[in-house]
Nucleic acid binder design. Structure first.
Lengths: 210, 210
DNA sequence: TGACAATGAATGAACGTTCATTCATCTTCC
DNA sequence: GGAAGATGAATGAACGTTCATTCATTGTCA
């Protein structure tokens, strides 16, 4: 019932714990990570976690929250890009590759798995997705590049496609920790995705030369 | 060490257990599903599971195996379709929508989450993916439709894109159990995806009229 | 300034519970 | 009778969570 107070110094502890939790969750998953794992990774005692989070579920929720904030910030940055393709590029690179790619990919896949059965996490995650997709929908609707390039696809369809590709590549990512380095994968994925975007937003009926 | 024998009658029990496990895993996830849950769902005793599976991990592995067999069969069916687009359609609908869509989506996302930290499951899942992607790559490489429609994308790139979209939509699926029915979602996704395929395999430089 | 009181962040052993796994026992069917 | 199928109570390890306790820091008063 009683929320732990959140003032200046507490903020640091909270993010210290969340940082440790991200590492553990990515390595072992939500339900295989024990509170002792987190406290160990953070270099603090178990009990202290309960001063900052009501329980384990609250830690998971807070991580989903953090993920939302990160995505929202990215969207803001993307909105300021001069062209649609540049906006998308910002979103895509940030989306799956910033910070520690392995960790983030594994964490996001786990987040969706958790969302599929935890209504609270589902709400948070859906919220992130809706916000981000609405943002992209807007970018598309306002972009001159997209005006003459419907291909029978609405901005809504396009946004869904773009997100599906991004999430799908992230999903495929978790299976390939060894074949290539993260940087190589990122480069290749960006290249492929860029071509898709160009194709999607190429004025309908325009001649294309490789 | 000692594999439980697998003969005629045992096969039925095994699939009975796997069927129950799929339901439980989709509902609660691998690690929140107890062996008692599975035995309850299957209508048998806990101990009996251990006559057919060495341990819980073996049940998870067997499910990944089953998933592989299903995908391989689908690929075989898709190979016999008369055109590339029809092949892809068979793969796509089977891929995420056959049987009980909700269950399968949640299970597959969980499978990938598990793969990200369980090397054995990762190997199995990667194997499925490689097989399926190689199949699609072949379909594309042999298809006359794809010959004149490179857009700077190799068959490899195209296969990766097609898979990313399919997996991505599956991932988005787990967040939307309420907005629409499974059938509505399937229809809409298929429509959007179909347009993407047409766009990808439309001869380069050809005029397109909605 | 120095002695003392109060605070609350931090600790980690302990608790109750859950879970995977085992095995003594019972049933079935030839 | 006995081999194989099936049961579920028992086991012990691991887990999330609690809480009595410690102790560095801060506030108070002479």
């Amino acid at each position: 019932m009683s929320q732990p107070q959140i003032d200046s110094s507490n903020g640091d502890r909270r993010s210290q714990i969340l940082e440790a939790a991200l590492v553990c969750f990515a390595k072992r998953g939500f339900h295989q990570t024990s509170m002792h794992d987190i406290s160990g990774e953070a270099g603090i005692s178990v009990g202290l976690i309960y001063r900052y989070f009501e329980n384990k579920e609250a830690v998971i929720s807070a991580m989903a929250d953090r993920h939302k904030k990160e995505i929202t910030e990215m969207l803001e940055r993307a909105r300021q890009a001069p062209s649609l393709l540049e906006s998308l590029e910002i979103l895509f690179t940030a989306h799956c590759c910033e910070d520690a790619p392995q960790f983030v990919s594994a964490f996001v896949v786990d987040l969706y798995a958790e969302a599929s059965r935890n209504p609270h996490v589902a709400d948070l995650t859906r919220d992130v997705l809706e916000t981000a997709m609405a943002g992209v929908r807007n970018l598309i609707a306002r972009a001159p590049e997209a005006q003459n390039a419907a291909h029978g696809l609405t901005p809504d369809d396009l946004a869904e496609l773009i997100f599906a590709v991004a999430r799908g590549m992230l999903m495929l990512d978790v299976l390939r920790p060894q074949e290539m380095t993260a940087a190589e994968r990122r480069t290749r994925q960006l290249e492929v995705t860029r071509r898709l975007w160009r194709l999607l937003f190429k004025p309908e009926g325009e001649l294309a030369y490789a």
